[in-house]
Nucleic acid binder design. Structure first.
Lengths: 159, 159
DNA sequence: CATGTCAACTTTATATATAAACTATCTATG
DNA sequence: CATAGATAGTTTATATATAAAGTTGACATG
């Protein structure tokens, strides 16, 4: 009987541990996201999804397909269509024909887009650095490793 | 000179450490969020914000004001108005007069709301437990502590 | 080569989100 | 008491998001 109780409460503890972990992850994420979103709007009159999309493109000068953007940003294709529309309208990116597949585009930063992203990236780095300043470097490194592990784990668990 | 270079690269490393940390936090958060959202829709035809709002209310049988919900959920007041409208329309919650302040409501779960939330909470726990199964309990505990620390830190940094 | 199936993207309807302006009420202070 | 300011909530305009259906082009297989 006491064994059963012990088992029960250990299962309960573990469940609570995982639940708390998820809630804290979400809270931290929202706090940072809100701060970055407000800063992006105040200083650049733009949004986090647009910044995120431009950040993806900056790493691929040859361009990315809509579907690749969708997978990297963990959002649906229809959503990417909307964000790309907005950024294209303001001249920061372009849809280019994909020579290998007439159904697809290769989305690229324009010259102005690269310039603009460069400015935002510098500020973005300083916001993040400031938010984490006060957390010892060693703790950041440990957190970083654990999150890398968790991310790999989640990627397997969520097809 | 070599000292200056050393300083530069250590600053760079630290910046990259914080940036990676933020990106991984965001990725983990989105992976879990997407999984939970799809499960909530598939099994209960509801959304994560509604579940979240009901979870807040479940802890306060006496009811919460709109503004308290807004602060706890880290979203704007206008957003809370919309989610409360939806949940009230389906009879899961009610806006009650606040006897102490005629401007305010006390939002409460209805009987049906409590019943419904109970069902969802059980499933939610099992989804989360399953997502984290495979991450050793010890690592979860460490992550949990680090995130609690980070959260407290961010709360101070983001007024 | 015809055709069925799949893949890339867009469109539609709807639900969150924000920022900013607005209404109603409370509260402090002279 | 009067009233100036702050607080609680809603509304409006706009930008993300999703799911599901629709288009168009690719591609394998008989």
């Amino acid at each position: 009987m006491s064994a059963a109780v012990g088992l029960d409460s250990s299962v309960t503890d573990h469940t609570h541990e995982s639940l708390r972990l998820w809630l804290r992850l979400l809270a931290c994420s929202h706090l940072i996201e809100n701060h970055v979103r407000k800063s992006l709007y105040a200083q650049f009159k733009t949004t986090l999804p647009r910044f995120d999309l431009m950040a993806q493109l900056e790493r691929f000068p040859a361009g990315l397909q809509m579907g690749e953007l969708s997978r990297r940003m963990l959002v649906t294709g229809g959503n990417v269509t909307g964000i790309v529309d907005q950024l294209e309208r303001t001249g920061l990116i372009v849809r280019t024909e994909d020579p290998a597949d007439r159904r697809a585009y290769l989305v690229k930063l324009t010259k102005e887009g690269r310039r603009r992203f460069g400015q935002m990236a510098v500020e973005h780095e300083s916001w993040i650095l400031n938010l984490f300043s006060g957390i010892p470097k060693r703790e950041q490194r440990l957190l970083n490793e654990s999150l890398a592990h968790l991310r790999a784990h989640l990627t397997r668990k969520t097809p």
